[in-house]
Design a protein around this nucleic acid. Structure first.
Length: 186
DNA sequence: GGCTGATCATTA
DNA sequence: TAATGATCAGCC
């Protein structure tokens, strides 16, 4: 199977298998439980292979939104993580699924997430969206999230002036999810 | 190997 | 069309 053409398939199969019901809305996957479902790709050594996508960014809404009301926090305060074997050489049907577990960030993790989020939100609010790179953030990072690099979406400046920007999304660094998985297995 | 920026399938 | 689900590919 061509893995290049099956990127989101694993996640969607899990949603189907576990009965997630939010569809492609900007809300937690399990509406009644307020729990977000995420798969984590693991290599043979049991460490995460990739960073984990959290959500897309609504540029205009970042400016006057507090951390407690942010989409990132709403999604991350309770997550059902499901580790999945993801070596590129293993065919999709042969991949093993690990035991899923419900996770909530510890106080330290919340503090780290919040610090990164507030710094990034401040940059967005100041109209520095094009200066944000994936280098920023200790645990949370901002990366392109678009069909291709040429895609632009209309957004609003802090002054209310329209401008074009590349769509972005929030991601959890692999080092962060590695700690989560390690703690869950301990 | 780790990280960053780019890209792909499917659905409402 | 735009949002969801992530992984790919190349530079360091």
């Amino acid at each position: 199977m061509d893995q290049r053409r099956a990127k989101g398939l694993v996640g969607q199969l899990m949603e189907l298998a576990l009965g997630a019901d939010a569809g492609n809305k900007d809300q937690p996957d399990f509406l009644g439980l307020d729990v977000e479902l995420k798969t984590i790709p693991l290599r043979r050594d049991g460490r995460p292979k990739e960073s984990t996508y959290v959500c897309s960014i609504s540029l205009p809404k970042m400016a006057d939104r507090e951390w407690e009301d942010s989409i990132v926090w709403r999604k991350l305060k309770r997550v059902c993580f499901v580790p999945i074997e993801s070596e590129r050489a293993i065919p999709l049907p042969d991949r093993r699924v690990g035991g899923g577990f419900i996770w909530s960030p510890t106080d330290d993790e919340v503090a780290a997430l919040r610090a990164d989020w507030e710094r990034l939100a401040a940059m967005i609010a100041r109209g520095q969206i094009d200066e944000i790179t994936a280098h920023l953030g200790d645990v949370l990072q901002v990366r392109p999230k678009a069909p291709n690099a040429a895609a632009k979406r209309m957004t609003l400046d802090t002054d209310g002036a329209p401008r074009w920007a590349n769509p972005r999304g929030f991601y959890l660094r692999a080092r962060f999810t590695e700690q989560i998985v390690a703690r869950a297995l301990a």
